[in-house]
Design a binder for these strands. Structure first.
Lengths: 317, 317
DNA sequence: CCACTTTATGCTCAAGATGAGCACAAGCAG
DNA sequence: CTGCTTGTGCTCATCTTGAGCATAAAGTGG
C-alpha cells in the first residue's frame, strides 16, 4: 500500500522599499516564522496558482499580483513535520511547490498573524550593500571549511563548492547563488533546520550569523525565491512590480540594491535606464530626497508589449 | 472526500548532433510519441530525481547524466487521460513534474520501444536555421490572427502576445519563447492535444504545420525543455554536456545552432569561444570535415571549478 | 547672503565587446 | 593546376561598460 501524497503550496510574497526587501511571513506559536502556505486541494483548486492565491488571501488578507512558480521540492526528510500537517492524512508523503509573488506596497496585514519581514534576518550573509559582511569570513567560512575537511574523498568537491558559493579564496561573490549557499549551510549542519530534522543539537553559532530559521522547508523556498529574483531582474523588467506608480531613479536604485544585496554605481545605473527605454520622465520633481529635487519617473508598461523585455543593468560600484 | 493525488515524472532527455537535436521518446500503441515517464512512488523514491532516473532506465535502458527540474504542471484538464494512468487510483488528480536531461551520445536504445526523435518534428515552426519557416506566416499566423480576432475584449492582448511570441509585424523572433508559442497554439485550438481534450474536431491544418502531437501533456513539457535549454546555453556552459570528449569548433557550432534553431556567425562564434577560456585546443586535427582539417578541442571541465560559468555567445548571422 | 552638505544629473574617456566581413590556408576532386 | 570546401586570422567601425570629474539645485547654520 503506497502512502498518499499531499501537495503543499507556499508563497514568497516580496515587497521592497529603499531600506530592505520584505517577505510576507506568518507568525507561529513558538515564535517561528513561516511563509503563507496551505495544502493543494485536488477537488477545489483548478490550478496550483489559484489554490495558492486562495491560501495567501486566507492567511494574510492579501491579494498577490504577479506570481510565478519557483520549484517543486519532493525529497524525503525535509518536508513539513507531521504536527504542522493540519488535515493531511497522517503518513502522507509531502511535496512542496514554491511560488514567488511581487507586490508594490506593503499592504496593511495587521489584522492577520502576518508581518512583512526583512529577508536578511534569515540570510544575514546575503546583504553586501555595506561591503562583505564580516560574519562570512569570521564565522561561517571557518565552520564550513571544517565541514569540508571532514568530507574525506569529497573534500575537494566540497571546498570548491564553498569557494564558488561564498566567494572564498579570490572567487567573486555571485549574488544569485543564494540557494547554493543555504544548501551548503544545511548540509554542513549550520542551518538550524537541518539539526531539527536530524535530531541533533543545534550548532554552537549565534543566530546573528546563521540567520533565523523558518518552519518546515520555508527557508529553502525563500532562498530559492531570492536567487531567482536576483537573477531575473537583470533580464526581465520585474523590479517595477515592486515599485509604486511614480518614483525617482534613486528610489529605484535603492530597491534594486536591496534585492541584490549590493550597491550600484549611480551614474551608470541611470545611464543604462535612460537607454533602456523602460521609463518615462514625468517632468515633475520631488523634494523629499534631501538634496536637489529629483525627477519622478513612471514605468512604461507599454514597453512590455513592444518586446522591450530586458531588465535593469546592475553596474556594481 | 478529496480525491488522491498522483505525481507523474516525465523526462526530456536531449542529445544532439550536427543535424538536429533529439529527444528520447517512447512509441505508443497508436503510433503516438511520448516522453519516458512514470509515477512517483511515495514509498520507493527518496527524491523525484531518483525516481525519474529509475523510470528512464526501465523504459529506455538509458542512464541519464545531467538532470534538472523544469516545471510542475498541475492544471486540471491537461493531465494524463485516464486510460494512460496505469496503476493510479482512478479519479486521482494528476500532477506532472518535468525534467530535462542532457547526454553526449545517442546511446543504442533499440532493445526498448524508444527512439531518438528530432524535436522539430513536434515543433516545425521552431527551426529557423534555414531562415524563418514559411509555414509560420503562411499557415499558422493567419489561423492565430483569426483566433485573436475572435477574442472580443481580449483582442489586443491576444494579438500582442502573438506578435511577441511569433515575431509578427516587425517583432524579432526570440528563440527561447518556445513554450509561449506552444501555449498560444494550444489556446487557439491549433495543438491537436487541445482538441483531443476538449472533444473537438482537429483543426483543419496539416501536421506538417502543426507538428506531431504527443501523449498527455508531453509536448508541453518538451516545449518547456527546449525554451529552458535555449536560454541556458547562453549563460551556463551546458552545451558541453551534449558534446563528445573531442570535437571541432564547427561541430560545436552546429550543435548550438540545432538547439537554438538559428544559424550563427562563424568567425564571431569562434572568437567568443577563444576568449571564454572554456576550451583547450588539443593540437590534433581531423580531416573528417571535408575541407581543410580542423583542430580538435576539449571542454575544460576545470573551468566549472574556477567560477568561469558563462555559456556560449550566440552571434546571429 | 555665504560657505557647506546633500542629492541629482550631465559628460568624458579608456577599455572591451560586438557585428560584419575580407583574406588567406589547407585539404579534396577532377 | 583549378576550383571547391571548410578552417582560421585579422581588421574596423560601432556600442557598451566601468570609472570618475564636474556642475546643478535644494537645505542648513552662521
Amino acid at each position: 500500500m503506497t502512502p498518499p501524497i499531499a501537495v503543499g503550496l507556499s508563497a514568497v510574497i516580496v515587497a521592497a522599499d529603499g531600506r530592505a526587501p520584505y517577505a510576507l511571513a506568518t507568525q507561529h506559536a513558538d515564535g517561528a516564522a513561516g511563509l503563507p502556505h496551505g495544502r493543494f486541494d485536488p477537488k477545489g483548486h483548478r490550478t496550483f496558482e489559484l489554490g495558492l492565491r486562495e491560501w495567501v488571501r486566507a492567511q494574510t488578507g492579501f491579494e498577490p499580483g504577479y506570481v510565478e512558480q519557483l520549484y517543486t521540492f519532493g525529497d524525503l526528510g525535509r518536508e513539513l513535520p507531521q504536527a504542522e500537517l493540519g488535515d493531511a492524512p497522517s503518513g502522507a508523503r509531502l511535496i512542496s511547490v514554491g511560488y514567488l509573488g511581487l507586490t508594490p506596497e506593503r499592504t496593511d496585514i495587521s489584522a492577520f498573524d502576518a508581518v512583512w519581514r526583512d529577508w536578511y534576518r534569515h540570510f544575514p550573509w546575503e546583504d553586501h550593500r555595506a561591503g562583505r559582511p564580516a560574519l562570512i569570513d569570521q564565522t561561517l567560512a571557518p565552520a564550513l571549511r571544517a565541514w569540508a575537511a571532514r568530507g574525506g574523498r569529497q573534500d575537494a568537491t566540497r571546498l570548491a563548492r564553498l569557494q564558488l558559493a561564498f566567494g572564498l579564496d579570490g572567487q567573486p561573490w555571485v549574488e544569485e547563488r543564494t540557494l547554493e549557499r543555504y544548501e551548503l549551510l544545511y548540509e554542513a549542519g549550520l542551518a538550524t533546520e537541518a539539526n531539527r530534522e536530524r535530531d541533533r543539537k543545534p550548532f554552537p553559532l549565534p543566530v546573528s550569523a546563521l540567520g533565523e530559521p523558518m518552519i518546515s522547508d520555508h527557508r529553502r523556498i525563500l532562498a530559492t525565491a531570492i536567487g531567482r529574483l536576483r537573477g531575473k531582474i537583470k533580464y526581465r523588467p520585474v523590479v517595477f512590480e515592486l515599485m509604486p506608480e511614480r518614483f525617482t531613479l534613486l528610489e529605484l536604485q535603492k530597491v534594486v540594491e536591496s534585492l541584490l544585496g549590493l550597491s550600484l554605481h549611480k551614474q551608470n545605473f541611470r545611464r543604462s535606464l535612460d537607454r533602456s527605454g523602460l521609463l518615462v520622465g514625468l517632468g515633475q520633481t520631488t523634494q523629499a530626497t534631501g538634496g536637489r529635487p529629483a525627477e519622478l519617473f513612471r514605468f512604461r508598461r507599454e514597453a512590455l508589449r513592444e518586446g522591450n523585455v530586458s531588465g535593469v543593468q546592475t553596474p556594481r560600484s
